[in-house]
Design a protein around this nucleic acid. Sequence first.
DNA 1: AACGACTACAACCGCTCTGCC
DNA 2: GGGCAGAGCGGTTGTAGTCGT
Length: 203
Amino acid sequence: MAEKEVKSIGSVKDVRKEMNRGAWTAEEDRKLAEVIEVHGAKRWKMIATTAGLNRCGKSCRLRWMNYLRPNIKRGNISDQEEDLILRLHKLLGNRWSLIAGRLPGRTDNEIKNYWNSHLSKKIKQEKQSGGSTRGCSKLQRTRVVEEVNVVEVKREDTSNGGDQCSKMSFNVDEFFDFSEEGPLNLEWVSQFLELDEGLCHPS
DNA sequence: AACGACTACAACCGCTCTGCC
DNA sequence: GGGCAGAGCGGTTGTAGTCGT
């Protein structure tokens, strides 16, 4: 995609007055990266002004988060990653940032795009051919999502010292804590799959 | 070669959430 | 508690590239 990006540089830009819009140029990327290096990735309005980019803070944030940030993986979503996305989407719905949080180096925007252009069609096709990937009923899937909502509520509650998590069979904070993981540490996947299987095929 | 349809993805928009005063 | 600004999220749009005719 980098090739495509280079080609498109400047093609949309300067069409509208006031703020720059459209594709980012290499020069803009460089300026933005420089300012973020100095000030950190916070206060995007200030960053936009300081960099002299004539872009809104939101636009700068998006560019940084999705393309300029270190350790970003681009393209080539592996089968393993695809499978994870499918499973997580089944569990979480369109909560792309949460899904992206479980895929090191991937961004919510990339996953969202990948879903819309690849996986949603794939699922449609599978449904049309009568095949359910996991054999989960709609009701069971609803249960899974509700369960996750409970997880989030309980997670807030635990900060108040309450021990109300008896419903959950795994440690919620560990489940959502990505801070100490190496790239594509899949231990949590096993935990998740156990939960998934348990809900879809209760014994 | 030319053209239109389709695809993929970068970027924008509007809304919500969060923190500060 | 209310208002405001900044940050973050998900949905949608715009456009370049690709494919089929």
